[in-house]
Each structure stands twice: as C-alpha cells, then as structure tokens.
Simulated assay, not measured.
Amino acid sequence: MARTWAAARELKLRQTAIDWLKFRTDDGAVPLTRDEILDFKFEGDSFRLQPTQQGIRKPAVFDAALSIQTVYRPPGKERPYDDTVGADGLIRYMWRGDDPALAENRALRRAMELELPLIWFIGVGMKPALFQAVCPVYIIEEEPELQRFVIAPMDEEAFVRRPTDGDTVLQATIKRYMSRETKVRLHQPVFRSTVLRAYEDRCAVCNLGHRELLDAAHIIPDSHDLGIASVVNGMALCKIHHAAFDSFLMGIRPDHVVQIRPDLLEEVDGPMLQHGLKELHGKPLMKLPSARGERPKRELLDMAYGRFLAGTAA
C-alpha cells in the first residue's frame, strides 16, 4: 500500500472497520478473538485493526491512531496501565510511558485534534484471548498533568467535544449525556461479555445455557470503585432469575446457596413458580466460574443477602 493516503480514504477505512465490527459483534454484544479480528479486509486487502504488543495502533499510512487496546487481567492482577473512571463517569486512557512526545501519544493527540473515531479493543477473557470491540470512541480531552486522555464512546452523529470553559446548564447536560453513553456503550457490554464468558454462558442458578436468555447481573449496584468489568460483582443469570434476584424474591447466601422469599414458598401458582423458583430453595448454585478469582466476592454477596433478608422481613 502507498505510504501516503488521502484523508478521505483514511476516514473511509475507519468507518468501514467500525461498520464491520458492529456487524461481526451484533452491535457490540459479542466479543471476538484475535484471529476473528484479523478477518477484516479493506478494498480486498487484509488490514490489521488491532494493536499487538503495543496498546495503541497507528498504521504507518495514517495521520493518527486507529485503535487502542486494554488487555484482560483476572481479578487481583494489575493491568500494565491503570485506565480509570473519572468522577464525571468518563474513561481515562493512560499515555504510553510518561513522554508526551512519544509516537503513540502523539498519534492519540492527533486523533483528538482531528476529531477522528477510534476503535477500543477491551480484553474480556483469556485462553483464547477475547476482546470487546467498542466503537466508535472519541478522545475529547487530554489531561497532561495526569498523563492521560479522556474518552467517550458515541456515534458520529452524537459526537460533541466536551466544553471545559465554565459549568453552564448546557455543559452539565452534555457531561451527563456522555456519562450515560459511556455506561451503555462501554461498561454494560464489557461487563456482560466478561461475566458470561466466566460462567461459560450458563445461568448460575439453573444452568440454562442459551446466551440470548442470559443477563450479566450485578450483585450490588454498579460502582466505579470496582472497575469497568468487575466479574467478582457479577453473576450470569437467566432473565427470570435475574428479575427474581433484583426484586428480592430470591437471595443468594454468601456460601452460594439459593434462598426463596418465604411467602413465595407458601404460594401456589403453577409450574413456573414451582419449578423455576420454589424447588431451588436451599440448593447450591449450579454454575460458578472455574477460576476461583472470578467467582462472586463473598463480601458483596453478604451485602446483597442482607438486603434480601431486610426485604423478606418487611
């Protein structure tokens, strides 16, 4: 390929790649392996979208970075770079190293200046490595004193650079919008893929194995303190057991035993209640992650079970 590309052609490749990833992942719902991501072609030629060892990919023929990557680490294992959630709900992506003039950092800064869409590959599992493709994302700000960029995932027609001069009602509205988009387009799909992969696409309570009928349920309400994809704060639950758990019809003890609200145990209301809930009372969970480090955190289950007991006593 030629060393110099027209800006329009570079943008066309970005948009083609984003459309292709959305199609391959069912609009971000399904993670991909590295080999699956390598299937991408542009104008008949293979074109690598994903960084390899580096966290930032800028093709030599591009004016700015094309994609970024965050590797998966099991709970308790530190990532090479500490990407965090700010108080405004937006993601911070760390520079590579501490030199602002490093080529990869300049490539990201250029993408910010040109307001170009990027692809973010977020690791959600290993053996094989699985990545959630979140796209498009935009760099809307740099925080050089903290050596990081501010990232917001949103579609091109919704993209707006975050205002930084003052705190008007409009600016506050834009910040809330971007924070909401970050949760919907990044946190939720990454959390879902991480949890369902850990539970091998099975409901923890009944072992149902149809992914389309499964949710990634939070044990306690989502918290930035636990990270973007905190598998230890999640369980794979089918939709009926997710609803029962969230509405305190069903609790799960810290020792992984299912409890059904006492008044339901006395109720007679057909086979769904009988077999779907009542018969599970006192039974252990049927599915847990094989990796102990990915199993529900005991203190989180304890908190959730306390809320369940408070609800049954009301």
Rank of each mutant, 00 (worst) to 15 (best):
T182R: 05
R73Y: 02
V160M: 14
E10K: 14
L116W: 06
R161K: 15
M112Y: 05
G86Q: 04
E299T: 15
L32N: 07
E113S: 14
G311V: 06
A65W: 01
S247K: 15
A29G: 01
V190W: 00
L214H: 06
Q69H: 07
A107L: 00
L301E: 06
F248G: 05
Q54K: 08
G311K: 10
P75H: 05
L300C: 06
V85Y: 05
P254F: 10
G276V: 09
F62E: 11
R110H: 13
L237C: 09
I91P: 00
E181A: 12
A60D: 09
M303K: 14
E212F: 14
V232H: 01
A29W: 04
M126Q: 08
A2K: 13
A314D: 07
A244L: 01
A198K: 03
L114F: 11
L90D: 06
A7H: 10
G44N: 05
I151H: 01
A244I: 05
P100I: 13
P74H: 09
F23Q: 14
I228M: 10
R211E: 03
L130E: 04
K287H: 04
E212C: 12
L66E: 05
L213M: 15
D269P: 00
A216F: 02
E115S: 15
Q274G: 09
R211V: 11
